[in-house]
Design a protein around this nucleic acid. Structure first.
Lengths: 204, 204
DNA sequence: GCGTATCGGTACGAAGACGTATCGATGAGT
DNA sequence: ACTCATCGATACGTCTTCGTACCGATACGC
C-alpha cells in the first residue's frame, strides 16, 4: 500500500536483489513478533531473532536498518482484517460473530499491543505501522458493519452509541487482562456484546 | 505489609533508621513514576532518578534492593482512590461524576499503565503492586457505586450489564489513545457514559 | 560455466545500565 | 559534645546490546 515497485513481476516486498524469499521473510517477521509478545519490545534483541531463525545478524541489519524499522516492517506485514467477511444481514448477529472472531485472536494481538508498551508512543514509525496493521483495518471493518446496519434501518444514523462501539469492543479486549488477569476469549466477548453493546444500540 | 517494625511510633514506611523523610521518599516515587510515564519502564534508569532527585544512586539501592522493587514500592505508595466520595443518591449521576473524575486523571494513570508495558506481566511483584495501587481500589469503589444503585432499586441485581461496567469504563480509558491518539478526557468519558453505559444499564 | 553479490558466522567497538564499593561529610541520638 | 550510621558523590566491574566489519561459501544472472 505504501510503496510499490511497479514493474516487478513477483512479490518483492523484501527489498532489491535479496535472496530472501517471502516465506523466509515471514519467518523473520513471525519470530520477532512472537519474541515481542513473550519478552516485550525492549527485551527483544536482533541477536535473538537471528538465532531463532538461524540467520545472521548481518542479514537482518542489511535488510532493515535498525530494530524499530525491522519491527515496523514486521507489523505492517502482519496486517490482516479479522472482521472482514462478516455480513449476516443483521447487525446484532454481525456483532455477535465479530465478538467470537475477535475472541479467537485477541490473545495474540492484545499481547502484542501490550508488549509494545511504551515503544509505539515514542516511535512515530512504530505507531503508524501499528495503526496500519492492527487498528485501522479492524476499525474500518467494524464501522462498515455498523453502516450496513444503519442502511438497513436497524439503527438510526445519529444514534449516540454508534461512535463508541469500536472503543467498547476493543477497549474490553485490552482491559480484561488488567482487570482479571486473563485475556478476553470468545465467550466472554459474546456475553459482553449481548449484555452491553446490543442494549446500548437499542437492539435489545 | 511484608515486614513491620511493630513498635515504631511514627511513619516508618521507608525502612529502619533511614534519614529519608516521607516527603523525600515521595519525591523519589514521584520522580520514578514520572520518568516511567515519559520514557517507559525499561528506559528508566536508577541513575536518572538519582540525578533528577539530586540523591545518590547508593541511597536508592540501599533503600530498595533493585529497580523492580523500587518501582513496585513507588506504585504502592501512589495508591489513591479517585472514585471515593462519589455518592449522589442516583446511580446515573454517580456514573456521570465518576466519568468526569476519571477524565481528570486518566492521562497520568493511563500513560503509566501503558508505559509499564510488558514489565508488569513479567514481574509478579510489579503486577501485584499495580493492581493494589491503581486497579483494585477503583474497581471496588465502582462496584460499591453499582451496589448502592442496586440497593436503591435502580437496577436489578441480576442485570447482565452490571459485571461489565468496570470493563467498559476502564477499557475505553485504555483504548482511546490507541484508536484516536489522545487520552480520554472528562468530556469524552461523560459522553461515553451517557451514550453507552447508562443505556446498557437501562437507565436511559 | 563464471563473476559477483548476498548469505551465514563471528569478531569487534562503542555505549549504557545494573549493582557494588569506597570515601568524606553530616546529622541524629545519647 | 561525641559517636556512628547514613547521606551524596563517584569510580568501578560486569554484562548486555546495538550496529559494523570481515570472511569464506553459496547461489543467482548472464
Amino acid at each position: 500500500m505504501t510503496s510499490q515497485a511497479a514493474d516487478e513481476p513477483e512479490t518483492v516486498a523484501a527489498s532489491r536483489r535479496s535472496k530472501i524469499t517471502p516465506e523466509r521473510e515471514r519467518e523473520f517477521f513471525d519470530a520477532v513478533l512472537e519474541q515481542i509478545r513473550e519478552c516485550g519490545y525492549e527485551s527483544v534483541t536482533m541477536e535473538g531473532v537471528a538465532a531463532s531463525t538461524r540467520c545472521s545478524k548481518s542479514t537482518l541489519y542489511r535488510q532493515w536498518r535498525t530494530k524499530p524499522q525491522f519491527v515496523a516492517a514486521a507489523l505492517r506485514a502482519s496486517r490482516r482484517v479479522r472482521f472482514a467477511g462478516i455480513d449476516t444481514g443483521s447487525l446484532a448477529e454481525d456483532l455477535r460473530q465479530a465478538a467470537r472472531a475477535a475472541g479467537d485472536w485477541s490473545g495474540k494481538d492484545t499481547k502484542l499491543l501490550q508488549a509494545l508498551g511504551h515503544a509505539w508512543t515514542a516511535d512515530k514509525e512504530l505507531a503508524e505501522a501499528l495503526r496500519e496493521a492492527l487498528v485501522n483495518p479492524e476499525i474500518a471493518a467494524l464501522q462498515d458493519m455498523l453502516a450496513r446496519g444503519v442502511a438497513r434501518g436497524e439503527v438510526r444514523a445519529d444514534h449516540p452509541a454508534l461512535e463508541y462501539i469500536p472503543a467498547m469492543m476493543f477497549g474490553v479486549l485490552r482491559i480484561r487482562p488488567v482487570l482479571s488477569g486473563q485475556y478476553a476469549d470468545a465467550d466472554y466477548l459474546a456475553r459482553f456484546v449481548e449484555a452491553t453493546v446490543l442494549p446500548a444500540l437499542g437492539l435489545t
